[in-house]
Simulated scan of single mutants.
Amino acid sequence: MTHENLIHRPRRLRRTPQIRRMVRETRLLPEDLALPLFIVPGVAVRKPVVSMPGVAQLSIDQAVLVAKEAQDLGLGGIILFGIPKSKDSTGSDAVDPNGIVQSAIRAIKAELPELWVIADTCLCEYTDHAHCGVLRGQEIDNDATLEILGRAAVSYAEAGVDMVAPSGMMDGMVGAIRAALDNAGHTLVPILSYAVKYASAYYGPFRDAAENTPTFGDRRAYQMDPANRREALREARLDIEQGADWLMVKPGLAYMDILRELRDRFDLPLAVYNVSGEYAMIKAAAANGWIDEQRVVMETLTGFKRAGADLILTYHALDAARWMQDA
């Protein structure tokens, strides 16, 4: 075929910003994003996380201010992680009605009742050994941990949380939490399950932010092997059977295939966690002038949505929402 006979010229629909916007297939909105917040004791605390430029541990009063900014920018919500004043072997602050996250939920909802607040529901930030459950020797006692997770979820619900998000990859955690919530009368509180959470090297900076580096071993005995795909489908199916309302894949960038496969196979809302290491790499490259931070962030977040995510948990959320306003 000579060029005189070309009929199909896809470049016709790429020539100008106007036509590119008109034919754009995937649209990213502020409401697609949720901002993680790390809550610590004290007043007027904004302690920068060195490995995550732009992220800080926040006292409750400061978290309320950041949550207000998130609401004003139209974000889909926030997710809370708590770092208590003291930790013990069973993570008792996680179930304390006056614990750090419970107190933060009440303060934020008092000021911002319409903001969607999610509570990460795990014990790793609360235990003095930083594993995601109570120990029997150097092994996690799965079923004893389930009872505590159920109590924690109920305490978050009673504080006014909108959704709980179990992240410890304990067997049966969704069913145990659903039963605990329902038995306590919180039948309308949904569960966002970290159904597919890999034992990833991308979590490094998060351990600085959440102060939850294990004192021995690692989490590979309960988080998933990064090489496994079929196992991800089994985990998702099990959580659906136990009553999960949302599914999540964590991390994001190295697991786009998993995100897409869950989207194709299941019809529940789907979230993805754009994790700390992914965030830190972009920040480091941008600080060195190697990439255009705004373009790379927006391309990455759009990729998550194109792969099937309904909600993206990301430390870029505030910046991304501002860039969308300015576009």
Rank of each mutant, 00 (worst) to 15 (best):
F266I: 01
A254H: 14
L253P: 06
A287R: 15
P269L: 01
F266L: 03
A287M: 12
A285M: 15
L259Y: 06
R265I: 09
V275D: 04
E261I: 09
N288H: 14
N288T: 07
A284H: 08
L253F: 13
M256L: 15
L270F: 03
R265N: 13
G277V: 02
M281D: 06
A284M: 06
Y279A: 09
G277I: 03
A285G: 14
A286F: 12
L262E: 02
E278D: 08
Y273D: 00
M281Y: 12
L270M: 03
D267N: 12
N288K: 14
L270S: 01
A287P: 07
M281V: 12
M256R: 13
Y273H: 02
V275F: 09
Y255P: 02
R260F: 05
L268C: 05
A271W: 01
A280G: 03
N274Q: 15
R265A: 13
A286E: 13
A271N: 00
A254T: 14
A271I: 01
G289I: 09
P269M: 03
D267K: 11
A287G: 13
Y255C: 00
P269C: 02
R263N: 09
N274K: 08
V272K: 03
D257Y: 12
D267G: 03
A271M: 01
A287E: 12
A285H: 14
A280H: 05
L270C: 02
M281R: 11
A280N: 03
L262Y: 06
R263K: 15
G277R: 04
E278A: 10
L262W: 05
L270D: 02
M281S: 12
G277Q: 01
P269N: 02
G277E: 04
A254G: 14
I282W: 12
Y273L: 00
R263I: 06
R265D: 11
V275K: 05
I282Q: 09
V272C: 01
K283W: 13
L259N: 06
L268I: 03
A280Y: 06
A280C: 03
D257T: 07
A285Y: 15
D267L: 02
L253T: 12
I282A: 11
A254I: 05
V272L: 01
R260G: 04
L262Q: 04
P269S: 01
R260K: 13
R260L: 08
Y255L: 00
A284P: 04
A284W: 07
F266T: 04
A285W: 15
L253M: 15
E278L: 10
V275R: 05
D267I: 00
L253R: 13
A285N: 12
D257V: 08
G277D: 03
A254R: 10
E261Q: 15
M281N: 07
A285T: 14
R265W: 13
L270V: 01
R263A: 09
P269G: 02
M256C: 05
N288E: 14
R263V: 06
S276E: 10
L253E: 08
V275S: 04
I258Y: 05
I258E: 00
A254D: 11
R260Q: 14
Y255V: 00
E278K: 13
L253C: 11
A287K: 15
F266M: 02
K283M: 15
A271K: 00
Y273I: 00
D257K: 14
